[in-house]
Design a protein around this nucleic acid. Structure first.
Length: 357
DNA sequence: GACACGTGGCG
DNA sequence: TCGCCAAGTGT
């Protein structure tokens, strides 16, 4: 907000400058309430495309709070794209461990190497062609890092627009309608600030459960608010029940502290991540017959973990292995002090903790 | 369009 | 306790 505008504001003359469009009202609100985030440029400053890209990948389906420490870790260790492109795949997967959706990390590596080799695209279309960059991320980077007038649509924007226009079609069927409305709303001026303003509004005011309409700069324009249906929008198709799966996992330890670990197949669930050997996960319980080595296994309890599309209960077994034990195919002994550098997903960290590692 | 793909916080 | 949800993408 300009100094003049601030003075007018303080003097209570704001009503006389009431914005004529939602975009103008939103930008005025953003100038006062914008959140300071690690990947964001200071007001009026220029954002670093590398940091914008990295943050957008991390933020896919992930909260700002969860991303914070990971973004800090990545940018400290790999301050620019050349550094990231030069890192080993396993290093990056290990640094990503715990953030989830590990295909993002695999695509991040591939994308970093393309960016380092070919340079950063300066168009939305150019970004869209990169691995791990879909319609949302391409538009977000174009708008935020290059100030190009792209239509940015994430779930915040979907929610804000569905309410603003009182779109009652359930998601995902409503996506085309919402996108079209979002495109009409997007201003030609300050596209980067506008995109971030929509997301800040969705995160702090126009929240899913109980929106703070009383503090919303778009309230005068909001059809859903006028009709008293804001909190119920956007509608969504009902979710299907989450299936249950069970399995067993085995933590073998040598006297010197080393533990038996293997790497999961490169693609699919937890692809490329490390794990303790175990059974498949299905609907039938299994016992120690699924163990990778014949040892005196001791049950230490179940671990419960909920994935997006199924819930898992894993029976955890531990045993001491002789120093001479040969690792089974695809498995390896990992020294106790090297375990922290393994790409162990949260599920396997729960297992490690229960096993006393 | 539908489904696979993680994790943690919140009401 | 448990379902909902988060700055989506790839197949």
């Amino acid at each position: 907000m300009t100094l003049v505008a601030k003075i007018f504001n303080v003097l209570g003359w704001r009503r006389s400058m009431k914005p004529k469009t939602p975009a103008a009202a939103l930008l005025e609100w953003y100038d006062v309430h914008r959140r300071a985030l690690p990947w964001r440029a200071p007001a009026g400053g220029r954002a670093d495309p590398y940091r914008v890209w990295l943050s957008e990948i991390m933020l896919q389906q992930t909260t700002v709070a969860a991303v914070g420490p990971y973004f800090e870790k990545f940018t400290t260790r790999w301050p620019h794209v050349a550094a990231l492109a030069g890192a080993r795949d396993e290093e990056i997967l290990a640094a990503w461990a715990g953030l989830g959706y590990y295909a993002r990390a695999r695509n991040l590596v591939a994308c970093a190497r393309r960016l380092a080799a070919d340079g950063f695209p300066e168009s939305e279309e150019g970004w869209r062609a990169l691995p791990g960059v879909g319609p949302y991320t391409a538009a977000a980077v174009a708008a935020i890092a290059y100030d190009l007038p792209a239509t940015v649509v994430d779930s915040n924007v979907e929610r804000v627009v569905a309410r603003l226009m009182a779109i009652e079609t359930p998601l995902p069927a409503a996506k085309p309608e919402i996108r079209a409305a979002a495109a009409r709303l997007s201003p030609r001026e300050r596209p980067g600030d506008y995109a971030q303003a929509m997301m800040d509004l969705g995160a702090t005011i126009c929240t899913p459960a109980s929106p703070a309409c009383g503090r919303c700069p778009l309230a005068p324009f909001c059809v859903a608010r006028a009709r008293g249906i804001a909190a119920g929008l956007p509608r969504r198709a009902p979710r299907l029940a989450r299936p249950e799966r069970v399995g067993a996992v085995f933590v073998a330890r040598r006297k010197d502290g080393a533990a038996l670990v293997r790497t999961r197949p490169a693609r699919g669930l937890l692809g490329g991540m490390s794990e303790f050997p175990g059974s498949d996960w299905s609907d039938a319980p299994v016992g120690v017959e699924a163990a990778p080595l014949k040892l005196d296994w001791r049950a230490v309890g179940p671990v419960r973990h909920v994935f997006t599309h199924f819930a898992l209960t894993l029976d955890v077994f531990v045993a001491e292995a002789p120093g001479t034990a040969k690792p089974p195919p695809r498995a390896r002994w990992v020294a106790a002090d090297a375990l922290a550098r393994e790409a162990l997903p949260s599920l396997m960290r729960k297992v490690a903790r229960l096993a006393g590692l």
